[in-house]
Simulated scan of single mutants.
Amino acid sequence: MTSTRQLWDISAPIHHSSPVYPGDTPYRQVWTASIGPQCPVNVSTIEMSPHIGTHADAPLHYDAQGAAMGGVDLAAYIGPCRVIHAIACGPLIQWQHIAHAITPDLPARVLLRTYAQAPQHWDDQLTGFAPHTIERLADLGVQLIGIDTASIDPASSQTLDSHMLVRARNMRVLENLVLDAVPEGDYELIALPLKLMQADASPVRAVLRSL
Rank of each mutant, 00 (worst) to 15 (best):
A101C: 07
A12G: 09
I152R: 11
V204A: 02
D153T: 00
P50S: 14
W95R: 00
R28W: 10
S157L: 05
I147T: 01
E135L: 05
R209F: 09
I35V: 15
Y187A: 13
I52R: 04
L60D: 10
I145N: 14
A64T: 04
D73V: 09
W122F: 06
K195F: 06
A88G: 05
E175C: 14
E184D: 15
H55A: 01
V182Q: 12
P131I: 09
S17D: 06
R136P: 01
R28Y: 02
G146W: 05
I93N: 05
R28L: 01
C81Q: 13
P19I: 13
D9S: 12
L196M: 10
A75K: 14
Q65F: 07
K195W: 10
I46A: 05
R167D: 12
L208T: 07
S210P: 04
P40I: 03
Y115S: 06
L208H: 08
S3Y: 12
A99G: 06
L196A: 11
A150I: 04
I145S: 11
L140D: 01
H15D: 09
L74W: 10
G90E: 02
Q38K: 06
Y77Q: 05
G79A: 01
I52A: 12
Q143Y: 04
H100I: 04
R82P: 09
D161V: 11
P13Y: 00
S210H: 02
N176C: 14
Q6E: 09
P19Q: 11
G23N: 03
H16R: 03
L194P: 00
E188F: 08
